[in-house]
Protein backbone atom coordinates (compact mmCIF):
# COMPACT_ATOMS: atom_id res chain seq x y z
CA UNK A 1 0.00 0.00 0.00
CA UNK A 2 1.33 3.43 -0.82
CA UNK A 3 1.04 6.19 1.80
CA UNK A 4 -2.09 7.86 0.44
CA UNK A 5 -4.02 4.61 0.18
CA UNK A 6 -2.89 3.77 3.70
CA UNK A 7 -4.28 7.06 4.92
CA UNK A 8 -7.61 6.41 3.23
CA UNK A 9 -7.77 2.97 4.81
CA UNK A 10 -7.13 4.40 8.28
CA UNK A 11 -9.76 7.11 7.83
CA UNK A 12 -12.30 4.56 6.61
CA UNK A 13 -11.59 2.28 9.55
CA UNK A 14 -12.03 5.17 11.99
CA UNK A 15 -15.28 6.20 10.32
CA UNK A 16 -16.63 2.66 10.68
CA UNK A 17 -15.53 2.62 14.33
CA UNK A 18 -17.33 5.92 14.92
CA UNK A 19 -20.67 4.86 13.49
CA UNK A 20 -20.52 1.32 14.87
CA UNK A 21 -22.75 2.06 17.93
CA UNK A 22 -25.59 2.97 15.60
CA UNK A 23 -25.23 -0.16 13.52
CA UNK A 24 -24.85 -2.90 16.09
CA UNK A 25 -26.87 -4.25 18.95
CA UNK A 26 -25.84 -3.98 22.59
CA UNK A 27 -24.18 -7.35 22.64
CA UNK A 28 -21.77 -6.65 19.84
CA UNK A 29 -21.17 -3.14 21.10
CA UNK A 30 -19.96 -4.66 24.35
CA UNK A 31 -17.68 -6.99 22.43
CA UNK A 32 -16.32 -4.03 20.48
CA UNK A 33 -15.67 -2.11 23.70
CA UNK A 34 -13.77 -5.07 25.11
CA UNK A 35 -11.81 -5.34 21.86
CA UNK A 36 -10.78 -1.69 22.26
CA UNK A 37 -9.46 -2.48 25.76
CA UNK A 38 -7.40 -5.19 24.19
CA UNK A 39 -6.13 -2.84 21.49
CA UNK A 40 -4.74 -0.58 24.24
CA UNK A 41 -3.30 -3.45 26.28
CA UNK A 42 -1.81 -5.18 23.28
CA UNK A 43 -0.17 -1.97 22.05
CA UNK A 44 1.36 -1.49 25.49
CA UNK A 45 2.71 -5.02 25.48
CA UNK A 46 3.84 -4.52 21.90
CA UNK A 47 6.30 -1.90 23.13
CA UNK A 48 7.78 -4.41 25.56
CA UNK A 49 7.72 -7.63 23.53
CA UNK A 50 7.46 -6.41 19.96
CA UNK A 51 9.84 -3.47 20.03
CA UNK A 52 12.27 -4.27 22.81
CA UNK A 53 12.03 -8.07 22.57
CA UNK A 54 11.45 -8.61 26.30
CA UNK A 55 9.06 -11.48 26.87
CA UNK A 56 6.69 -10.34 29.62
CA UNK A 57 4.33 -13.02 30.93
CA UNK A 58 2.90 -10.93 33.75
CA UNK A 59 1.57 -7.94 31.87
CA UNK A 60 -1.86 -8.21 33.48
CA UNK A 61 -0.17 -7.02 36.67
CA UNK A 62 0.00 -3.48 35.27
CA UNK A 63 -3.60 -3.73 34.14
CA UNK A 64 -4.33 -4.59 37.78
CA UNK A 65 -2.24 -1.72 39.15
CA UNK A 66 -4.24 0.77 37.07
CA UNK A 67 -7.61 -0.76 37.91
CA UNK A 68 -6.95 -1.03 41.63
CA UNK A 69 -5.39 2.43 41.95
CA UNK A 70 -8.40 4.03 40.30
CA UNK A 71 -10.84 1.79 42.17
CA UNK A 72 -9.36 2.49 45.59
CA UNK A 73 -8.90 6.23 45.05
CA UNK A 74 -12.47 6.61 43.81
CA UNK A 75 -14.25 4.47 46.40
CA UNK A 76 -12.17 5.10 49.51
CA UNK A 77 -10.98 8.65 48.90
CA UNK A 78 -13.76 9.88 46.57
CA UNK A 79 -11.33 11.17 43.95
CA UNK A 80 -12.47 12.21 40.52
CA UNK A 81 -11.77 9.58 37.87
CA UNK A 82 -9.70 11.96 35.79
CA UNK A 83 -7.41 12.74 38.70
CA UNK A 84 -6.77 9.06 39.35
CA UNK A 85 -5.43 8.56 35.82
CA UNK A 86 -2.08 10.35 36.24
CA UNK A 87 -1.62 8.84 39.71
CA UNK A 88 -2.26 5.34 38.38
CA UNK A 89 0.13 5.90 35.49
CA UNK A 90 2.92 7.21 37.70
CA UNK A 91 2.33 4.38 40.13
CA UNK A 92 2.49 1.80 37.33
CA UNK A 93 5.72 3.32 36.02
CA UNK A 94 7.22 3.07 39.52
CA UNK A 95 6.13 -0.56 39.86
CA UNK A 96 7.58 -1.18 36.40
CA UNK A 97 10.94 0.23 37.43
CA UNK A 98 10.94 -1.68 40.72
CA UNK A 99 10.27 -4.94 38.91
CA UNK A 100 12.46 -4.14 35.96
CA UNK A 101 15.59 -2.72 37.55
CA UNK A 102 16.86 -5.95 39.12
CA UNK A 103 15.50 -8.32 36.47
CA UNK A 104 16.08 -6.77 33.07
CA UNK A 105 19.70 -7.92 33.07
CA UNK A 106 18.49 -11.51 33.00
CA UNK A 107 18.44 -13.67 29.91
CA UNK A 108 15.21 -13.59 27.95
CA UNK A 109 13.77 -16.88 29.23
CA UNK A 110 14.60 -16.12 32.84
CA UNK A 111 12.96 -12.74 32.42
CA UNK A 112 9.81 -14.45 31.17
CA UNK A 113 9.62 -16.57 34.31
CA UNK A 114 10.39 -13.67 36.62
CA UNK A 115 7.65 -11.52 35.07
CA UNK A 116 5.28 -14.45 35.42
CA UNK A 117 6.23 -14.73 39.09
CA UNK A 118 5.67 -11.01 39.63
CA UNK A 119 2.31 -11.20 37.91
CA UNK A 120 1.26 -13.96 40.27
CA UNK A 121 2.61 -12.10 43.30
CA UNK A 122 0.56 -9.03 42.43
CA UNK A 123 -2.54 -11.16 41.96
CA UNK A 124 -2.01 -12.93 45.28
CA UNK A 125 -1.43 -9.57 46.97
CA UNK A 126 -4.77 -8.39 45.58
CA UNK A 127 -6.44 -11.50 46.98
CA UNK A 128 -4.89 -11.17 50.41
CA UNK A 129 -4.79 -7.45 51.18
CA UNK A 130 -7.75 -5.72 52.80
CA UNK A 131 -7.27 -2.47 50.89
CA UNK A 132 -7.87 -4.33 47.60
CA UNK A 133 -11.01 -5.96 48.97
CA UNK A 134 -9.53 -9.48 49.13
CA UNK A 135 -10.97 -12.10 46.81
CA UNK A 136 -14.25 -10.29 46.23
CA UNK A 137 -12.44 -7.18 44.99
CA UNK A 138 -13.74 -3.62 44.87
CA UNK A 139 -17.28 -2.78 43.86
CA UNK A 140 -19.42 0.32 43.61
CA UNK A 141 -16.82 2.28 41.67
CA UNK A 142 -18.64 5.45 40.55
CA UNK A 143 -19.08 6.48 36.93
CA UNK A 144 -16.82 9.24 35.65
CA UNK A 145 -18.31 12.53 34.52
CA UNK A 146 -17.26 15.33 32.22
CA UNK A 147 -18.60 18.73 33.32
CA UNK A 148 -21.79 17.33 34.78
CA UNK A 149 -22.41 14.70 32.10
CA UNK A 150 -22.07 11.26 33.65
CA UNK A 151 -20.55 8.62 31.41
CA UNK A 152 -22.93 5.82 32.23
CA UNK A 153 -24.17 4.24 29.05
CA UNK A 154 -22.58 1.59 26.88
CA UNK A 155 -22.10 4.02 24.05
CA UNK A 156 -20.26 6.48 26.30
CA UNK A 157 -17.71 3.86 27.27
CA UNK A 158 -17.36 2.70 23.71
CA UNK A 159 -16.35 6.20 22.65
CA UNK A 160 -14.10 6.70 25.67
CA UNK A 161 -12.31 3.46 24.79
CA UNK A 162 -12.12 4.38 21.15
CA UNK A 163 -10.40 7.67 22.00
CA UNK A 164 -7.93 5.96 24.32
CA UNK A 165 -7.23 3.23 21.79
CA UNK A 166 -6.53 5.78 19.06
CA UNK A 167 -4.26 7.72 21.41
CA UNK A 168 -2.41 4.53 22.35
CA UNK A 169 -1.94 3.54 18.73
CA UNK A 170 -0.66 6.99 17.76
CA UNK A 171 1.67 7.14 20.76
CA UNK A 172 3.13 3.70 20.13
CA UNK A 173 3.49 4.44 16.43
CA UNK A 174 5.34 7.68 17.10
CA UNK A 175 7.59 6.05 19.66
CA UNK A 176 8.30 3.19 17.30
CA UNK A 177 9.63 5.44 14.58
CA UNK A 178 11.67 7.63 16.90
CA UNK A 179 15.22 7.43 18.16
CA UNK A 180 13.95 5.64 21.27
CA UNK A 181 11.92 3.12 19.28
CA UNK A 182 14.87 2.33 17.06
CA UNK A 183 17.05 1.85 20.13
CA UNK A 184 14.58 -0.78 21.39
CA UNK A 185 14.72 -2.60 18.09
CA UNK A 186 18.51 -2.53 18.08
CA UNK A 187 18.45 -4.14 21.51
CA UNK A 188 15.98 -6.74 20.31
CA UNK A 189 18.12 -7.55 17.29
CA UNK A 190 21.51 -7.70 19.00
CA UNK A 191 22.07 -6.44 22.52
CA UNK A 192 25.84 -6.33 22.38
CA UNK A 193 25.96 -4.55 19.07
CA UNK A 194 23.41 -2.04 20.39
CA UNK A 195 25.56 -1.42 23.43
CA UNK A 196 28.59 -0.95 21.16
CA UNK A 197 26.62 1.71 19.26
CA UNK A 198 26.32 3.73 22.45
CA UNK A 199 22.91 2.54 23.59
CA UNK A 200 22.56 1.96 27.31
CA UNK A 201 20.61 -1.26 27.15
CA UNK A 202 19.49 -1.37 30.77
CA UNK A 203 18.06 2.15 30.69
CA UNK A 204 16.36 1.59 27.36
CA UNK A 205 14.83 -1.69 28.51
CA UNK A 206 13.60 -0.04 31.69
CA UNK A 207 12.04 2.70 29.60
CA UNK A 208 10.25 0.19 27.38
CA UNK A 209 9.05 -1.71 30.40
CA UNK A 210 7.75 1.42 32.13
CA UNK A 211 6.00 2.72 29.05
CA UNK A 212 4.32 -0.65 28.64
CA UNK A 213 3.31 -0.44 32.30
CA UNK A 214 1.84 3.05 31.89
CA UNK A 215 -0.25 2.05 28.88
CA UNK A 216 -1.45 -1.10 30.65
CA UNK A 217 -2.44 0.86 33.74
CA UNK A 218 -4.38 3.35 31.63
CA UNK A 219 -6.45 0.50 30.26
CA UNK A 220 -6.89 -0.77 33.81
CA UNK A 221 -8.17 2.57 35.11
CA UNK A 222 -10.81 2.76 32.40
CA UNK A 223 -11.66 -0.89 32.96
CA UNK A 224 -12.37 -0.17 36.63
CA UNK A 225 -14.93 2.55 35.94
CA UNK A 226 -16.47 0.69 33.03
CA UNK A 227 -17.05 -2.46 35.07
CA UNK A 228 -17.70 -0.55 38.31
CA UNK A 229 -16.44 -3.68 40.08
CA UNK A 230 -13.06 -5.37 39.86
CA UNK A 231 -11.80 -8.65 41.26
CA UNK A 232 -8.45 -10.49 41.19
CA UNK A 233 -9.89 -12.97 38.70
CA UNK A 234 -9.65 -10.36 35.90
CA UNK A 235 -5.88 -10.13 36.30
CA UNK A 236 -4.87 -13.77 36.11
CA UNK A 237 -2.10 -15.39 34.12
CA UNK A 238 -4.66 -16.25 31.45
CA UNK A 239 -5.28 -12.54 30.94
CA UNK A 240 -1.54 -11.95 30.43
CA UNK A 241 -1.44 -14.81 27.95
CA UNK A 242 -4.41 -13.51 25.97
CA UNK A 243 -2.78 -10.10 25.62
CA UNK A 244 0.45 -11.74 24.54
CA UNK A 245 -1.51 -13.85 22.07
CA UNK A 246 -2.98 -10.70 20.52
CA UNK A 247 0.54 -9.34 19.96
CA UNK A 248 1.99 -12.57 18.59
CA UNK A 249 -1.03 -13.36 16.42
CA UNK A 250 -1.01 -9.93 14.84
CA UNK A 251 2.73 -9.66 14.40
CA UNK A 252 5.36 -8.65 16.94
CA UNK A 253 6.24 -5.00 16.52
CA UNK A 254 3.61 -4.37 13.87
CA UNK A 255 1.09 -1.69 14.87
CA UNK A 256 -1.74 -2.58 12.46
CA UNK A 257 -1.03 -6.26 13.12
CA UNK A 258 -1.41 -5.85 16.86
CA UNK A 259 -4.71 -4.01 16.42
CA UNK A 260 -5.90 -6.88 14.25
CA UNK A 261 -4.64 -9.42 16.79
CA UNK A 262 -6.48 -7.70 19.64
CA UNK A 263 -9.74 -7.64 17.71
CA UNK A 264 -9.36 -11.31 16.75
CA UNK A 265 -8.57 -12.44 20.29
CA UNK A 266 -11.81 -10.88 21.50
CA UNK A 267 -14.02 -11.54 18.50
CA UNK A 268 -13.06 -15.16 17.83
CA UNK A 269 -14.20 -16.52 21.21
CA UNK A 270 -17.53 -14.76 20.68
CA UNK A 271 -17.86 -16.42 17.32
CA UNK A 272 -16.79 -19.71 18.92
CA UNK A 273 -19.37 -19.43 21.69
CA UNK A 274 -20.96 -22.70 20.68
CA UNK A 275 -17.74 -24.51 21.49
CA UNK A 276 -17.05 -22.67 24.72
CA UNK A 277 -14.92 -25.38 26.33
CA UNK A 278 -12.74 -25.72 23.27
CA UNK A 279 -11.78 -22.06 23.07
CA UNK A 280 -8.49 -22.13 24.89
CA UNK A 281 -7.61 -25.50 23.41
CA UNK A 282 -7.99 -23.94 19.98
CA UNK A 283 -5.95 -20.94 21.12
CA UNK A 284 -3.16 -23.16 22.35
CA UNK A 285 -3.09 -25.06 19.08
CA UNK A 286 -3.22 -21.76 17.19
CA UNK A 287 -0.18 -20.45 19.07
CA UNK A 288 1.82 -23.56 18.22
CA UNK A 289 0.68 -23.56 14.60
CA UNK A 290 1.46 -19.86 14.32
CA UNK A 291 5.02 -20.33 15.55
CA UNK A 292 5.54 -23.32 13.28
CA UNK A 293 4.09 -21.93 10.08
CA UNK A 294 3.91 -18.15 10.34
CA UNK A 295 6.12 -16.93 13.19
CA UNK A 296 6.03 -13.36 11.93
CA UNK A 297 2.27 -13.04 12.61
CA UNK A 298 -0.75 -12.34 10.41
CA UNK A 299 0.29 -8.79 9.58
CA UNK A 300 4.02 -8.67 10.17
CA UNK A 301 6.08 -5.57 10.70
CA UNK A 302 7.80 -4.61 7.46
CA UNK A 303 10.79 -2.50 8.17
CA UNK A 304 11.80 -2.07 4.57
CA UNK A 305 8.46 -0.62 3.50
CA UNK A 306 9.00 3.04 4.15
CA UNK A 307 8.62 6.15 2.13
CA UNK A 308 10.53 6.14 -1.10
CA UNK A 309 11.22 2.46 -0.71
CA UNK A 310 12.04 0.70 -3.89
CA UNK A 311 10.95 -2.82 -3.19
CA UNK A 312 11.43 -6.02 -5.03
CA UNK A 313 10.03 -9.46 -4.44
CA UNK A 314 13.32 -10.81 -3.16
CA UNK A 315 13.46 -8.22 -0.43
CA UNK A 316 10.26 -9.30 1.20
CA UNK A 317 12.26 -10.41 4.12
CA UNK A 318 10.53 -11.98 7.03
CA UNK A 319 11.91 -13.49 10.15
CA UNK A 320 14.08 -16.44 9.36
CA UNK A 321 14.23 -15.49 5.68
CA UNK A 322 15.31 -18.41 3.58
CA UNK A 323 18.73 -18.87 2.13
CA UNK A 324 17.14 -18.60 -1.26
CA UNK A 325 16.47 -14.91 -0.75
CA UNK A 326 20.07 -14.25 0.05
CA UNK A 327 21.27 -16.01 -3.05
CA UNK A 328 18.94 -14.07 -5.30
CA UNK A 329 20.15 -10.85 -3.76
CA UNK A 330 23.72 -11.84 -4.35
CA UNK A 331 23.06 -12.41 -8.02
CA UNK A 332 21.38 -9.08 -8.33
CA UNK A 333 24.32 -7.33 -6.79
CA UNK A 334 26.83 -8.99 -9.04
CA UNK A 335 24.80 -8.14 -12.12
Amino acid sequence: MNPSRKKIAVVLLLAVACVLPFLSNNYWLDVATLALFYVVLAQGLNVVVGFAGLLDLGYAAFFAVGAYTTGILMTVYQWSFWLTLPVAMVFAAIVGVIIGAPTLRLRSDYLAIVTLGFGEIIRILAINLTITGSASGIYGIPRPSIGGYVLGGQIDFYYLNLIIAVLAVVAVKRLGTSRIGRAWMYIREDEDAAEAMGINRINMKLLAYSIGAVIGSLAGSVFAVKMSAIAPLSFSFTQSIMILLAVVLGGLGSIPGVVLGAVLVIALPELLRSVEDWRYLIFGAALVAMMLFRPQGLWPARYEMKRGARRSKTEEATEGGSGNDVKLDNEKCNA
Binding site: R179, R182, A183, M185, Y186, E189, D190, D192, A193, A194, A196, M197, G198, I199, Y303, E304, K306, A317, E319
Partner: peptide, 20 residues
Protein backbone atom coordinates in the same frame (compact mmCIF):
# COMPACT_ATOMS: atom_id res chain seq x y z
CA UNK B 1 27.03 -8.17 14.39
CA UNK B 2 24.50 -6.19 12.37
CA UNK B 3 20.84 -5.72 13.25
CA UNK B 4 19.78 -8.41 10.80
CA UNK B 5 16.06 -7.71 10.32
CA UNK B 6 16.32 -3.94 10.02
CA UNK B 7 17.03 -1.86 6.94
CA UNK B 8 20.52 -0.74 6.01
CA UNK B 9 19.55 2.84 6.81
CA UNK B 10 18.17 1.95 10.24
CA UNK B 11 21.34 0.00 10.95
CA UNK B 12 23.45 3.06 10.32
CA UNK B 13 21.07 5.34 12.22
CA UNK B 14 21.97 3.37 15.34
CA UNK B 15 25.35 5.07 15.33
CA UNK B 16 23.70 8.45 15.82
CA UNK B 17 21.98 7.37 19.01
CA UNK B 18 24.76 8.54 21.26
CA UNK B 19 25.07 11.84 19.39
CA UNK B 20 21.41 12.82 19.73
Amino acid sequence: RLFPNLTVLDNVKSGMHSRT
